[in-house]
Amino acid sequence: MPLLTEGEVLANEAVAPGHFRMRLRAPDLAREAAPGQFAMLQVAHGLYPFLRRPMSFERIFPMDVTFLYKVRGEGTQMLSRFHPGQKIPVQGPLGNGFPITPGFKRHIIVAGGIGVAPFPGLAAVLIRRFGKAPEIVLAARTASLILSEDDFRQMGCDIHIATDDGTAGTEGLASDVLEQLAPDAATRVYACGPMVMLRAVAEIAATGKADCQVSLEAQMACGEGACLGCVVESVREQEGERMIRVCIDGPVFDGTLIDWEAHDPAYDR
């Protein structure tokens, strides 16, 4: 059951240019939350911005959750100005988290840019559940935007880094690295990042017959499945079932369900 509650900001600090991490004391929320799920944060006391901001959980602790976020517009700008001690209305947990199921020899996480947000928490759960750290592909435009590397290293993950400009790791894309790692039928891939990256990841996974779980992002009004604002096109053919809601049918989907062709990259920012 999702809750309407209030969290207390414990910390809200810049971790990279334009990127912040907020730690929120919200025991009821933390108790229910799972990696891949999200919360809606009400950043404004007044009526602008009107809507809450969906944020996936980065880490989930017994009393607290953290959010790793990029400042993109006025809402996230306001979020970045919250100080420790301030309260923030929060709704959640919402959506479906990553499936945590046995049967895979390898777990590979692929993160593009701020798409790394839900993965420290997922890695922690995978380690707890299967006793083995997942492999991590971290990709970003440039070295300063590679986030959470130390967290993953402390958890004992094998980390592969790629940057567009070659300032860290190999010069290239997350999907290039994943291809080298050759996911096979005994592999589950978890990916979050830009749609073009997710599409490439899903294709590589499909080629190797690997399971592939993608976490999508969308403009969202309600977070509850009511507004139908956050839909993506699926491969389902029936008219009434083709559009699937990121908020409640996802945000984590099997990569084979998404109609990647139908996505218009012109709207990506």
Partner: peptide, 26 residues
């Protein structure tokens, strides 16, 4: 009949409100 509605993006926030173009998905 069921309707798939419009393509995404379907929502954008504007001052003190939002624009939607869901297209009667139902």
């Amino acid at each position: 009949k069921p309707r798939a509605g419009n393509k995404s993006p379907r929502l954008v926030e504007t001052p003190a409100g939002l624009l939607n173009a869901i297209g009667l998905q139902n």
